[in-house]
């Protein structure tokens, strides 16, 4: 189920101050697609993600979400763009002074006219979808790392976004939880048609969910591979790409 480009990254150069991390990045994400961003640690995956959601200003180039430039958008236009996306951060970034339920209810309270009990039901539904309903009234500090990640995804879902950005959702999770998370991504993609941009290292999840993968490289600071995960594994010429897929695969098979 892929269609029009929903995100367009055009000639993006990203970095911090005068340090360039990525340069000349060009790619589109099509509506309904599940895209994974691969790359070694420190290769700039999170940086790319932060640029795509307009959190960090690109050094040059632009990022369009449904045709609106996330960098220059202001006021209502910017809010509209933000309403379309949900982000689950690498560390969870749950608000520690609120219960898990309130974390999810927060944006619903701020941005909708739904009555209190509706918000409560919706928040519990989102939590149920990630398998965390029982922890609704716990504080973030009382949850394990994996639970926090799932809660972060539930929070990202709270406004029914069109696009969901996940930064290393399965890092630090056990294989079963990680597989459940993949299942969740597929379900959300099929039932809600959500577009996913997922930063991940997990080969198993890449093959399980991704329609497409792009790989960024620290040395060349560019995208060194773009295609279906299977094709990248079987056909890529690039040594880094082969290494990424094969070395892990060897380990995985052992």
């Amino acid at each position: 189920m892929t269609g029009e480009p929903i995100i367009q990254v055009k000639n993006l150069t990203a970095g911090y101050g005068s340090t360039v991390i990525l340069k000349g990045i060009n790619f589109d994400v099509r509506a309904g697609e599940i895209l994974t961003i691969l790359g070694g640690s420190g290769s700039g995956k999170s940086t790319l993600l932060k640029n795509m959601i307009g959190l960090t200003k690109p050094l040059s180039g632009s990022v369009l979400i449904e045709g609106v430039d996330v960098v220059t958008a202001e006021g209502q236009e910017r809010l509209d763009v933000l309403r379309k996306i949900g982000v689950a951060y690498q560390s969870g970034a749950l608000f520690g002074s609120m219960t898990i339920l309130s974390n999810i209810a927060l944006v619903l309270e701020e941005f909708t006219d739904l009555p209190r009990e509706a918000i409560e039901v919706i928040a519990q539904m989102k939590l149920k979808a990630v398998g965390l309903q029982a922890a609704a009234y716990k504080m973030p500090a009382e949850l394990s790392g994996g639970m926090r990640k799932r809660a972060a995804i539930a929070r990202a879902l709270s406004l029914d976004p069109k696009i969901l950005f996940l930064d290393e959702p399965s890092a630090g999770l056990d294989p079963i939880t990680s597989a459940q998370l993949d299942e969740l991504v597929l379900e959300l993609s099929q039932s809600l048609g959500i577009t996913f941009v997922i930063v991940t290292h997990e080969l198993a999840s890449i093959f399980a969910v991704a329609d497409r993968a792009i790989m960024v490289d620290r040395e060349s600071k560019t995208i060194i591979a773009d295609g279906r995960p299977k094709d990248l594994r079987d056909k890529s010429e690039h040594p880094m790409v082969r290494q990424f897929f094969s070395r892990r695969l060897e380990k995985g098979n052992a």
Binding site: E120, V121, Q124, M125, K126, K128, A129, Q133, A134, A136, Y137, E187, L188, Q190, S191, L192
Partner: peptide, 19 residues
């Protein structure tokens, strides 16, 4: 059918009450 899937994903049998 497309909403049934949604229902299956989100359906809750009971609400968890605050402590």
């Amino acid at each position: 059918p497309q909403f049934q899937q949604l229902m299956a994903l989100f359906e809750i049998d009971h609400q968890v009450l605050p402590p």
